[in-house]
């Protein structure tokens, strides 16, 4: 068994997606609050706080500069946490995966279903966030509507990366490491709150080479400002290939962990 075996999947994987959707719908009100509140808090803190001392960043007002970064962060946050802490609880504490693989579904389909659900959480998050930013008039339409389909791909990327961590950590507490060492640096150094061009070269290249959020921000910023970034296609290709890679890798890692 290698780390890059192509998983055998059937449409049954959507049953796992439906299971998670059903749980989500039971607590839908509670689920909406963080999606709503988080970007608003950041918007007030950075937009009106910091934004009053910084007038322009990369040629646009500071609040318009950070709006796409907050959307990108919301997309990452939703799927990454769904497929780390969320999946870990279902796998280890609730034994939900064990229960499902006793039915005709395979472990590959269970994990694929989890990943697609993680991506769906990102889409839900972007659908909740867009109207908030629209009300403030800091994102352009109709180009920003493309964020919704794009958030599925970006969400799937972070879901798959998260699932890899879920497969390799020894305990749920260890999931704090990827949060500190991966999510937090990305939150700060992916061209989010200040332009990458202000950074020393090595940080800029590092961000472009290995920080997925950098590419997500590039694309979303192009959409919210309706100004295509020259790197946009490169970023899209980067995200697409990385998603494919981590999707396959995460399924194989989980298979190795659970099928012994």
């Amino acid at each position: 068994m290698s780390y890059f075996d192509v998983p055998k999947l059937t449409g049954s994987l959507w049953k796992v997606w439906f299971r998670n959707k059903d749980v989500f719908m039971k607590t839908i009100i509670v689920n909406f609050i963080p999606s709503f509140a988080q970007p608003l808090l950041y918007l007030f803190a950075f937009g009106f706080g910091v934004g009053n001392s910084i007038n322009v960043m990369e040629g646009v007002s500071y609040i318009r500069f950070i709006a796409p970064a907050l959307i990108a962060f919301g997309i990452m946050d939703a799927s990454f946490f769904e497929c780390t802490f969320g999946s870990y609880v279902r796998m280890y504490y609730q034994k939900t995966f064990d229960a499902i693989i006793a039915t005709p579904l395979s472990i590959e389909e269970v994990i694929a279903g989890e990943l697609l659900w993680g991506a769906t959480k990102s889409v839900i998050n972007s659908i909740i966030m867009l109207p908030i930013f629209a009300i403030f008039g800091i994102i352009d339409f109709p180009s920003s509507l493309l964020i919704i389909p794009f958030s599925f791909l970006a969400g799937l990327l972070f879901a798959a990366i998260g699932m890899c961590f879920t497969a390799i950590v020894p305990s749920i507490d260890s999931l704090n490491y990827p949060t500190f060492l991966f999510i937090t640096p990305m939150f700060l150094f992916s061209g989010t709150f200040f332009s990458l061009s202000l950074m020393p070269d090595f940080i800029r290249y590092f961000a472009l080479a290995v920080l997925p959020l950098t590419h997500v921000v590039i694309i979303i910023r192009s959409l919210t400002l309706s100004q295509p970034n020259p790197l946009m296609l490169f970023s899209f290709a980067w995200i697409f290939l990385a998603t494919l890679l981590f999707f396959v890798l995460s399924i194989n890692l989980m298979k190795k962990k659970l099928i012994v």
Partner: peptide, 12 residues
């Protein structure tokens, strides 16, 4: 299958 440890879905 009835497993040794309950894996009923606590969310439901």
């Amino acid at each position: 299958v009835v497993p040794q440890e309950s894996n009923l879905d606590p969310d439901f």
